[in-house]
Write a protein that binds this DNA or RNA. Structure first.
Lengths: 212, 212
DNA sequence: TCCGTTGTTGAGTCATCGCTCAACAAATGA
DNA sequence: TCATTTGTTGAGCGATGACTCAACAACGGA
């Protein structure tokens, strides 16, 4: 897959000049994994180029700079199954309750899946940054807060549909489910198993208006 | 100086040689604030010495190295009201339910208090670190996981006391409340207000066995 | 065939990182 | 008074950070 028409399966405009000697998408996947594991600043360009098997100048020619590469990595992650499960649940589930139940259960399973780094890249990859990378942290913060807004929209729709009572506190519920999802990510990074997180998800669902 | 018996209030053994020209506790408080704000690696020794008003060699003479300073900062933070509220609630509240309700409400209020950095230092100060600082991340991870164990102990006591039914899932509840507290910290760092987090805390309490 | 374009290569830029050292300054004990 | 001890100072160490540049290599178009 690609961002908006890069060298992805469906290729791109014919290029002149020397063709790239490495797979741009594979390199991007490598970047996703490293940023996911260690975070933005703790992953050096040297580690990235070594893992990609290329030289620094090739990375800069292909991606711009480290921040641009990170932004692309976040977008790729967000379109991967692991990064898109929240949006998919919100879009596909008929009821809000079903959507949030699925989100929590998926988060428990996915965040602790040992086949990839624990937790969520968007939650944990830019929490500790220097002043010069504040924009990167702000970028991910905006992504997270957009998630809160999406939760709130879904909850308000549920109120309009009558699924939730009129007195339900949509902003608080949106913030609550966000906090739980972020907490699941942290717990996964701290070593919690999928089984443990699955039980946490069930407990968290008790906050749904009307109870368990 | 000493690692066990700092120059806190109750002073320390009489020193020979030239006396320190700066307040060690005040310097430590500065370190707490900077590490709390930016995290371990994103806070440079240069920033620390500038904020403390001292030269690097003075910092190293007084604290050892950057990691040792961080460990001391974490201990000081943990003894401050802001860092000790969890332990205090567990120790002082008669019922487990009262303890966890107080923990969540305190977390909501304290993590979003604008008079200091948002969230919890132990939760957010060493999430993105390079391989060479892995021990620092492990140190805070152990602190957090010790918190989970403390939660579980309190919940098991509640089961023995009959406050919780025998079939209550203490490990899952401990992990759940940990996740919520960590989520509150993250939400606070992302800009959530104390009012918003207070409503989140009330929602989270609905998971208590027996419901709301 | 030769040109223009693009990518790779290896060396190297400059800034900052954590940290240290020799010289000097200020205290105590003899 | 003077030796000892401890802290401060200013300069600077080696390593690593992100990033760049000139030279070379591989392609398409004319």
């Amino acid at each position: 897959m690609g961002i908006s028409g890069y060298s992805c399966g469906m290729s791109e405009a014919r290029t002149r000049g020397r063709p790239r000697t490495f797979d741009r998408d594979a390199a991007l996947a490598t970047a996703v994994r490293l940023f996911w594991e260690r975070g933005f600043e703790a992953t050096s360009v040297g580690e990235l180029t070594t893992a990609m098997g290329i030289r620094p100048a090739s990375l800069y020619a292909a991606f711009g700079d480290k921040k641009a590469l990170f932004r692309e990595a976040v977008e790729v992650y967000g379109r991967s199954p692991v990064g898109a499960f929240v949006a998919e649940a919100l879009a596909e589930e008929e009821t809000a309750r079903g959507a949030f139940a699925r989100i929590l259960r998926d988060a428990a399973r996915i965040y602790a899946d040992p086949s990839h780094p624990a937790g969520c890249l968007a939650i944990s990859a830019a929490t500790n940054v220097t002043a010069q990378d504040a924009e990167v942290a702000a970028f991910l913060r905006d992504v997270r807060n957009a998630g809160v807004a999406a939760f709130e929209d879904r909850l308000n729709r549920a109120k309009k549909d009558g699924e939730l009572p009129a007195e339900a506190d949509a902003p608080a519920l949106a913030s609550y489910f966000t906090a739980v999802v972020q907490g699941l990510s942290q717990r996964a990074r701290d070593g919690a198993t999928a089984e443990e997180l699955a039980r946490v998800a069930e407990l968290a669902l008790a906050a749904w208006p009307g109870g368990r």
